[in-house]
Amino acid sequence: MMQEAVIQVRNVHKSFKTVHAVRGINLEILSGQFVALLGPNGAGKTTMVEMIEGIQKPDSGEILITGKQWKGHEKEFRRIIGLSLQETRFIDKLSVFETLRLFASFFSLGPQRCEEVMNLVGLEEKRQSYVVNLSGGQRQKLALGVALLNEPKILLLDEPTTGLDPQARREVWMILNKLKEASSTSLILTTHYMEEAEQLCDYIVIIDHGKILKEGTLKDLLGKSSADIEKKQEYHGPPRNLDELFIELTGRHLNE
């Protein structure tokens, strides 16, 4: 059976005054697929994701959600998309539960769903705490919870674990892995962390300077790349992980 593509990105370009942030990206994300956009600072990840989210408009190219354009379907898409932005600060003096309640109301959802989400992201103990008093990790979890409120068909997370300690990061991964087992949600997440892409995603897209350098499953990526590199460089054996692959592709470290 042919799987339905929930997101299609065709030859999308986007420039700001002096920066050509996205230069001709093509993507196709299937239902239930988890995709990582991996790239260093300034690669164009946020710009790309925000165009898919309908927050920014591409200069050229086409973005289709469930086969349809953003134009004219905004209302419909907003109901099926859940997202977290790279940096959002919620209202300082609202509690965790009140914040969830506020966002739930936008989807016409009641308090019951808020309870569920609070348990899902493990913030029950912080129910009454004001957002301003949460730790960085707890805020990220709240942002994730808000993204999950409407049981989105499409989930878009921009650096959901940046700045978290390894323990908190693993907790977020667990939440997302559970989601993967339990639903057919499609996920695009951006990250600097190889490990995150390896752990969570079945398809990995490496971008830099607004272009896709390489894409495929983890296995594909680690298997194929050696052949390209052999010609240019001395052969060191195939890269054993994404970090090495990235250095081979760009000559730079990902986290620099």
């Binding site: 989210e53 309908g54 927050i55 209302k75 907003r78 109901r79 998309i81 997202l83 932005l85 940096e87 959002t88 600060r89 919620f90 209202i91 966002f103 936008f106 989807f107 808000v146 409407n150």
Partner: peptide, 13 residues
């Protein structure tokens, strides 16, 4: 400036 507006209009609000 907190990007909260942006986050809110990315819902059916």
């Amino acid at each position: 400036s907190k990007k909260l507006l942006r986050r809110m209009v990315a819902t059916p609000m």
